[in-house]
Design a protein around this nucleic acid. Structure first.
Length: 826
RNA sequence: GCGAAAGUGGCGGAAUGGCAGACGCGCUAGACUUAGGAUCUAGUCCCGCAAGGGGUGGGGGUUCGAGUCCCCCCUUUCGCACCA
């Protein structure tokens, strides 16, 4: 860049060194007056080179932080590292680097990056989830939950690579094959640990209504995920087996149309039902195949419904008919009861299956306007119709009311009961991997599963393990780790080798920041009461469901434990949009990422134009909550703006203007304060930058033309520096200091504006005739209505357009416009 | 299929129901320069010489007045998706 540009390198390193040495972001939590807890989602130190797209939420967070400080708050803005995770273990396997060392190196690099961006955090409470000081409290939490039966162990399927002999995460399964060795992945059943989030389904759902500070779309996604369905459980007798088959349905009012039953192949009753079937071995083979199909494949692929006839029968309680029992893979084992009554006439999936197998179709609802024949229909009747063939309800119409009365009636008949079902499933936290929090239990031959007592926590992860990428979890081959003592009987025991899902780490970290160095307890309840819930959380939309739901769940659990009193962890949530860029590889606009080769390195950008330029441009390039495209050429606009600010300072010092007091510049100063303050509160950073550019343009003009007074220009410039500080902290601090102010900008008071000064003394009134713009008039702001009307009537343009017409009505919006509504002259 | 959000210049995008296109990029012309990828000035929605007319995905409506509110349609993006 040109030597005419300001020396951003010198300025930025100077201020970064000062902030570091003065630990500028630290907060004394004991003084909680005006407590404001803001939180930017802690990052996973992945080892990828950071690019400008990563900076967006941290830069936004820092702008907000600096703004809040200048508004007189003492915001807490901590940062830490979500440092357990799969990439570390992959790096260990591929590059023979220990995950711990690899992670530590990445953290150091990222921390350096935050410094270079000029971002202030309270590093005195930095935490890293892969340290025993942190994960010991994951273990503590787990043991507590085990005590309260909120944690339990059961069989559950996992993705299994037969060649690597290891469990795969969903993201390691690519097109049904192992990401590393391309072997076809199968489903395998292992005994695994779960947390009972389903106990809280209703609270998690109901509380969403009170989260006014959350984006609607996140709440919608969580509602869908929890998936509440109201309906009934119905009992179907199996007379030949002396059993009762219970199904869940949201449409119990269609029970008369249930012409067959379908069970998930995994349903526990299946072996008994097929025991006498001539096709028994074939069916067993098929069930086994379905069982081994990875769940992702079964759920995501568009495929024909596969099924088998068990040869067994159930009795429809409403009709008394014997109806066949089928197995099909479109019925899922872990939703509802894992079995359904099939009503092909009123359900698309059931109809499709019935048509393929030639099963009976029986209509309950008949559309009034069109004749539908059960024997030939190809589309289910889903809309409202008249009920027939359902005796006490004959002639009625469908609707929530009818369904509710139908359920009452069903209960009277003793066929079933009202029931609410959730789609949400318990949280599977077991991971058959090394790099995570060890689950603190031991297996004792005599005592069974025994939790590790609190006094023996943490169960630390051994450092000396071998990474081969084959044959499962390295912890299983570490004798020193495996050998344990049962705390109940004192006998030899074997330690659990599963580690926890990393979402456990992030589900409560916001509480740990408050007590980051406390080795007596998970966190201090008193501090939590004063600082929580988090006032403002900033993070990407990718966490809309899992992380944010788990954090809400754990908050409810901690409340049950009596450690906190609030139910919801995050009062306000802001989702920043991603930064995208055109990718040469795909020819499309995509999220920035290393693999797509469309990244921009912040290092080079900072070298060339400075961190302040990157910050200003990042916040200027579009609405903060929307996805925006990085335009490398447009960055120079931000750079030019900052250079203009620099030159304005030079001009002000070297050749101050000597004009008269300039009311208009003073007015624009107040307008800028008002606009910037209002938009900061709404996170509209892009329009804040625009407002600052406008103020700079006005000031630049005054300085150039030497029209304003020195005092007005200096006041305007100081205001500009204050308003710009959250965006360009280095440059503004430097110029503020050069202007001779003793306090740093960061410690200064945000400027206030005078309502009375926002109004110009003369305003342009827009003159409309019948809603169309015809003229503009310059009038004094305090002009009376009659004066304005007189002035309008005197306008030649108005006269011209009023020819042959007369004014029927006049609408005057003071200070803005006048609209003359006309009609033909009499 | 269900649910949600959004469609504005060459581009990113502004606009408490009140001058559409702020601000920035790009572009055009000029000034200063040995030079310009620096800086400054002016211009830049479309048609038209002008007066004027048209214009915020399409169609309707409410209103003195609609990018903004309501209804229908189209398109795009996102989320969920065999959830009984």
């Amino acid at each position: 860049m040109s030597s005419d540009s300001y020396d951003h390198k010198r300025i930025e390193s100077k201020w970064q060194a000062r902030w570091k040495s003065r630990r500028a972001g630290e907060v004394d939590l004991r003084n909680s007056r005006d407590a404001y807890y803001m939180l930017v989602m802690f990052p996973y130190p992945s080892g990828d080179r950071l690019h400008v797209g990563h900076g967006r939420n941290y830069i936004m967070g820092d702008a907000l932080y600096r703004y809040l400080r200048m508004r007189g708050r003492r915001p807490l803005n901590p940062m830490g590292w979500d440092s357990f995770g799969l990439p570390a273990e992959n790096a260990a396997i591929e590059r023979q680097v220990h995950p711990y060392d690899w992670t530590l190196g990445n953290i150091a690099a990222m921390k350096e990056q935050f410094l270079r961006w000029g971002i202030l955090y309270d590093w005195s409470r930095e935490l890293s989830s892969c340290t025993p000081e942190y994960y010991r409290w994951n273990q503590w939490l787990f043991v507590k939950m085990l005590e309260k039966e909120l944690a339990y162990k059961r069989e559950a399927p996992v993705n299994w690579c037969p060649s690597c002999q290891t469990v795969l995460a969903n993201e390691q399964v690519v097109e049904g094959r192992c990401e590393r060795c391309r072997t076809e992945v199968v489903q395998k059943t292992l005994s695994q640990w779960f947390l009972r989030i389903t106990d809280f389904a209703e609270r998690l759902l109901d509380n969403l209504d009170g989260l006014d500070g959350w984006p609607e779309r996140v709440k919608v996604m969580q509602r869908n995920w929890i998936g509440r369905s109201e309906g009934a459980e119905l009992d179907f007798e199996l007379p030949d087996h002396g059993e009762t088959l219970t199904v869940f349905t949201t449409r119990p009012d269609t029970v008369h149309g249930a012409t067959f039953m379908v069970l998930a192949p995994e349903h526990p009753l299946v072996p008994r039902l097929i025991a006498d079937s001539p096709d028994r071995s074939e069916i067993e083979g098929w069930v086994e195949k379905v069982r081994n199909t990875p769940r992702i494949q079964r759920e995501t692929e568009e495929r024909d419904k596969e099924g088998r006839d068990t040869g067994a029968f159930a009795v429809n309680p409403a009709t008394g008919d014997r109806i066949p029992i089928w197995l099909a893979d479109y019925v899922l084992p872990d939703y509802g009861t894992g079995s359904i009554m099939a009503v092909p006439a009123h359900d698309g999936r059931d109809l499709e299956f019935a048509r393929q197998r030639g099963l009976a179709v029986r209509l309950v609802y008949h559309p009034e306007d069109e004749a539908v024949d059960a024997a030939t229909m190809t589309e289910p009747v889903l809309h409202r119709g008249v009920i027939r063939n359902a005796p006490p309800f004959d002639g009625q119409h469908d609707g929530p009311d009818t369904v509710a009365r139908f359920i009452d009636w069903i209960e009277e008949q003793g066929w079933g009961r009202r029931k609410v079902t959730y789609r949400l499933r318990d949280w599977l936290i077991s991971r058959q991997r090394y790099w995570g929090t060890p689950i603190p239990v031991v297996y004792c031959d005599g005592c069974g599963i025994v939790p590790v007592p609190e006094s023996e926590l943490p169960v630390t992860l051994p450092y000396d393990v071998e990474f081969t990428g084959r044959r499962g979890n390295p912890l299983e081959r570490h004798e020193g780790f495996l050998a344990a003592v049962c705390s109940k009987c004192g006998g030899a025991a074997r330690r659990e080798t599963d580690t926890m899902d990393t979402f456990v780490d992030s589900s409560w970290y916001f509480l740990r920041y408050l007590s980051a160095r406390d080795d007596e307890r998970i966190f201090d309840s008193k501090l939590a009461a004063e600082w929580c819930p988090v006032d403002q959380y900033i993070g990407g939309i990718e966490h809309a469901i899992l992380h944010l739901l788990y954090a809400r769940f754990v908050t409810l659990v901690l409340r049950e434990f009596g450690l906190i009193e609030f139910e919801e962890p995050f009062t306000n949530l802001f989702n920043q949009g991603m930064i995208t860029r055109f990718s040469e590889e795909s020819g499309r606009i995509e999220k920035m990422s290393k693999s797509r080769g469309n990244t921009i390195s912040p290092d080079r950008l900072i070298d060339e134009m400075g961190a302040d330029t990157e910050r200003v441009y990042t916040l200027f390039l579009g609405p903060p909550d929307e996805e925006v495209e990085w335009n490398q050429e447009a960055v120079s606009g931000a750079y030019r703006f900052l250079n203009r600010v620099w030159r304005a300072a030079e001009k002000l010092a070297e050749a101050p203007p000597t004009g008269p007091a300039d009311d208009e510049l003073e007015r624009l100063r107040h307008v800028a304060i008002e606009r910037v303050t209002r938009d900061m509160e709404k996170f509209k950073f892009n329009t804040v930058v625009a407002a600052l550019m406008e103020l700079m343009n006005a000031l630049g003009k005054a300085l150039e033309e030497r029209t304003a007074s020195r005092l007005t220009c200096e006041q305007t410039f100081d205001t500009l520096l204050m308003l710009l500080h959250p965006f360009a902290p280095h440059l503004t601090e430097e110029l503020w200091e050069a202007r001779g102010h003793p306090e740093n900008l960061l410690e200064s008071q945000w400027p206030s504006y005078d309502e009375a000064k926002l109004q110009a003394s003369r305003v342009t009134i827009v003159v409309q005739i019948d809603g169309k713009l015809r003229d503009r008039l310059d009038v004094a702001v305090e002009a009376a209505e009659s004066e304005v009307v007189d002035a309008v009537m005197a306008s030649p343009k108005v006269e011209q357009h009023l020819e042959g017409r007369e004014v029927a009505k006049t609408i005057l919006v003071p200070g803005r416009l006048i609209n003359l509504v006309t009609r033909p002259s009499a």
